[in-house]
Design a protein around this nucleic acid. Structure first.
Lengths: 150, 150
DNA sequence: GGAACTGTGCGACCAGGTCGCAACAGCGTC
DNA sequence: GACGCTGTTGCGACCTGGTCGCACAGTTCC
């Protein structure tokens, strides 16, 4: 797989087999570290950092290096299988692109609420009409205070 | 000035003198590095990184260390004089709390649009009514695509 | 089974900050 | 103006999160 351009026009691959097929189709190779990483990603839909995913992979195959995890996450993101989001200061978190959503994160306690896309529709319309700006509400969380911390 | 709690309940100090008075009131000292930093912040209202502000201070007084800049920015933020925002991957940017606003940042070209608070009102209401979550739209930018990059 | 090329482990490195420490400097008091 | 308390600073070491170059290993295709 060439590590350049290639648009994530394929968001929504929803099985390990689909992901591997897409990988192969784009000239990539099916390696054991990639299969393990995909398995970790599909096994639990939680948001996890590269370190956490690395630990899960290494639990089965300890010699997989963390830099391989980062490179594979990058590749999977370029294929539109995975997305990363920043939920505050600290490491990025990764999850499957199928089922991407926005995030509200409490500045105080770190609690995270997954926000359905439609909650951003009004903002999306205003940004488009006033600034011709097309928002992507998934990438960076919206910070604030949760009920308990207000 | 003690480096603990102290809420930023004073957002909106809008002169160097006001900032210094607040600093003193809270037990802090008026040092030359702080005066220089405040002067840099008030001189231009652009968003700047700690490195950039450091360079401006060091242009006048080269021995001010970058870690002092970070510490002073922290202190000023704790006093509610300054806020920082994350406009994408890369270093945080700082600007005066008086005149804080949201940001739209293009994922492609990095262009930044300052967004008036009222554009977030609908989202703010929905987040409050649906999740009891009180958003702060200033801290993290909303990413997306600008007109030219769509 | 071998050539061709992609992916991997490894260690070095980088950016953006943070921290501990000893020396220094504000500021209130005498 | 000197004194002393205590907040602040310069400095270097360190930390986290991530990237990169390299030589070798693994995958795929013929």
């Amino acid at each position: 797989m060439t590590r350049s351009s290639a648009q994530p026009d394929t968001a929504g691959v929803d099985s390990i087999e689909g992901a591997l097929a897409l990988l192969r189709e784009r000239g990539g190779r099916v390696t054991s570290s990639r299969v393990l990483l995909l398995r970790a990603l599909f096994d639990s839909r939680r948001h996890r950092t590269a370190e956490e995913l690395g630990a899960e992979v290494q639990a089965k195959t300890p010699e997989v290096h963390i830099s391989t995890i980062y490179r594979n996450l990058d590749d999977l993101e370029r294929l539109g299988i995975v997305v990363h989001a920043h939920l505050g200061h600290g490491p990025a978190t990764y999850h499957l692109a199928a089922g991407a959503h926005g995030h509200f994160v409490c500045e105080e306690c770190g609690a995270m609420i997954e926000a359905p896309d439609e909650i951003f529709e009004g903002l999306s319309r205003s940004a488009r009409s006033r600034f011709d700006f097309d928002i992507n509400p998934h990438h960076f969380a919206v910070l604030g205070r949760c009920r308990g911390c207000q």
